[in-house]
């Protein structure tokens, strides 16, 4: 019944235009025939073809995905543990330091995180490569996971766990059978966040990667520094498409679940 006033309509329209027009232009010019990114010379998909031939990009993409999958999975396990400790752990020695170390990386400039990790790896004599990137990404993304999961755990009704214990579960069983299924959506979104953070990261990866392993953002950055290129537009379009599909699917799934839950509840009310 509520309608938007003209002021609100205008600010939303302008705001979303600002957010989306640059990306739309980027996508359009990925189909440009010309090498010049700003002059339209007819429709073509040739840049996508060239992209597929570009070994360096494909290798970098493969490395990036491997790093993202491994680091986000470890980060989810560690982050969930950390969240559980923070919310349910009670008091222990060094708790303040622990929660400080969880929250600090969230506000730490990437250049500092990258630099400090690099110095550590050199000090330890570790060769820079996939392993060092994974270690670095796991460290900062586990903090994001633990923030997402702990915000869910805080609102979690503790009596559910207590019921499970009362009915004969061991604490580990209670966690696996009751807590985990209920906080699963938060754990999954934590994993997705960690995954995208890892895919996206340029600065920390630049510090911690070696000549043996180059990630896609590093590759894109060095190409982009030389100027705008249609191949990068094509690559960006593919990445935007994947993200858009993912986000839309995720929101449709949640919406369907909500609708179904509402309908079930209404049906239950009637009977």
């Amino acid at each position: 019944m509520k309608r938007l006033s003209w002021f609100n309509t205008v600010s939303l329209t302008l705001g979303f235009a600002f957010l989306y027009v640059p990306m739309i232009i980027l996508v359009i010019f990925s189909f440009n025939e010309s090498k010049l990114v700003t002059v339209w010379a007819g429709f073509s998909t040739k840049w996508y073809g060239e992209l597929m031939q570009n070994e360096a990009f494909l290798n970098a993409a493969w490395v990036t995905i491997k790093v993202a999958v491994v680091s986000s999975t470890i980060a989810t396990v560690l982050g969930t543990m950390a969240a559980y400790v923070l919310v349910r752990g009670g008091r222990f020695m060094g708790r303040t330091l622990f929660s400080g170390m969880i929250y600090a990386p969230l506000v730490m400039p990437e250049v500092i995180t990258g630099l400090s990790l690099l110095l550590l790896f050199i000090g330890m004599g570790l060769d820079r490569g996939i392993l060092t990137i994974v270690l670095a990404h796991t460290t900062f993304s586990m903090c994001y996971v633990s923030v997402v999961v702990s915000s869910r755990l805080v609102t979690f009704d503790r009596s559910l766990e207590e019921t499970a214990l009362d009915l004969g579960c061991s604490p580990a069983e209670a966690f696996r059978l009751v807590t985990l299924p209920i906080i699963a959506p938060a754990v999954i979104s934590g994993w997705l966040l960690a995954f995208t953070l890892s895919l996206d990261d340029l600065v920390i990866a630049s510090f911690t990667s070696g000549p043996a392993a180059t990630t896609l953002p590093i590759k894109i950055y060095s190409a982009v520094r030389l100027g705008v290129s249609p191949e990068i537009n094509a690559l960006s379009t593919i990445m935007i498409a994947i993200v858009t599909l993912g986000v839309i699917t995720a929101s449709l799934v949640t919406k369907r679940q909500m609708v179904r839950q509402k309908r079930d509840e209404q049906a239950a009310e009637r009977t």
Binding site: T196, I220, Y221
Partner: peptide, 13 residues
């Protein structure tokens, strides 16, 4: 969720 780098790049053009 879209790459930070790509969003900056979009403005370069």
């Amino acid at each position: 969720w879209t790459s930070f780098l790509i969003r900056v790049y979009a403005w370069m053009g």
